[in-house]
């Protein structure tokens, strides 16, 4: 005490001095601890400020245990307003519109066939998988956000996440479609001679190539839309779905007026084109948004 009265004080406030960014921070804390102008004299200083300056100079800054609660210090996105029921209804309606597209896009005379209904049911069942994979993307993003050092580092870590999530969803969608078509084949086989190749092949043949393309395009549209919605870009997702609806409505209108060439009149073509065009915009969007750290809050 006699030689160096400040040493004891430094030991008592070790963590404070190591973590302080400025002498005034130490001064404020010292005053809070009862060392004021009256007691600074014991430490051979005129006031608490010069005492704090000495302590700031003598204790080196050290990276140390900040508050352990810091792990949870990701504040809620300040831009997110509370959702009203109308705001929730809009995406649901848009989603329904996109899902029901193949029904409208049937052969002009025959009406929606059994294959179209089966594919719509399969896509509807697979939306659960889309939501799940989008949640997985968000969960992974949050986990990486806790530990990533820089934005570039974060983006590099997130690079494989979107392909994996979309791949899983598309696989589930394909399996569901196959299953639905297989059930359809078993219940109501196509008229005509039974083809070689068994049930699988028959199921595949239930829907034409155009319909399969339409189903794939729908998958590539709904997957990124779900991811965008989970990453706080609900507006972009909604715009994508609505534009797919509008595009396909326009295509059907043109077809009814007879303005489309003959190849485009096959059932499923309009859906494939409309959903494909919207997906071509939403996919890069989702790719960018997934790599951005701001969306995971």
């Amino acid at each position: 005490m006699a030689g160096d009265p400040v040493r004891e004080l430094m030991a008592a406030h070790q963590a404070l001095c190591e973590q302080a960014g400025h002498p005034l921070e130490i001064a404020a804390a010292l005053e809070e601890a009862g060392i004021g102008a009256a007691t600074a004299g014991q430490y051979r200083h005129g006031d608490v400020f010069s005492l704090a300056e000495e302590m700031f100079a003598r204790v080196p800054r050290r990276a140390g245990g900040g508050p352990s609660r810091a792990d949870s210090a990701l504040p809620a996105d300040p831009a997110a307003p509370p959702r009203s029921s109308v705001a929730r209804l809009k995406p649901a309606l848009a989603l329904l519109g996109v899902l029901l597209l193949p029904l409208a896009d049937a052969a002009p005379a025959a009406g929606p066939g059994g294959a179209a209904v089966a594919l719509v049911l399969a896509a509807g069942a697979a939306t659960g998988a889309a939501r799940y994979s989008a949640r997985w993307v968000r969960h992974t993003g949050r986990a990486q956000l806790r530990t990533a050092a820089t934005i570039a580092d974060f983006r590099a870590r997130m690079r494989p996440v979107l392909p994996v999530a979309l791949g899983l969803y598309v696989v589930v969608l394909a399996v569901a479609s196959f299953a639905a078509l297989a059930v359809l084949t078993a219940v109501a086989p196509r008229p005509g001679p039974a083809l070689a190749g068994g049930l699988l092949h028959a199921a595949f043949r239930q829907a034409g190539v155009a319909r399969w393309c339409a189903q794939a395009a729908l998958g590539l549209l709904l997957g990124p839309a779900a991811v965008l919605r989970c990453c706080g870009q609900g507006g972009a997702a909604l715009a994508g779905l609505l534009s797919a609806d509008a595009l396909s409505a326009a295509a059907l209108l043109l077809r009814t007026c007879g303005l489309l060439p003959g190849w485009a009149s096959a059932p499923g073509t309009a859906t494939a084109c409309a959903a494909g065009a919207a997906a071509a915009v939403l996919l890069p969007c989702a790719w960018i948004v997934v790599g951005r750290p701001g969306g995971y809050r």
């Binding site: 190591e18 973590q19 960014g21 080196p60 800054r61 050290r62 990276a63 140390g64 900040g66 210090a73 990701l74 956000l145 806790r146 530990t147 990533a148 050092a149 820089t150 934005i151 580092d153 974060f154 750290p293």
Partner: peptide, 9 residues
């Protein structure tokens, strides 16, 4: 940044 490097968060 003597007492800690900033992370993305």
């Amino acid at each position: 940044t003597a007492a800690g490097q900033p992370l993305v968060r």
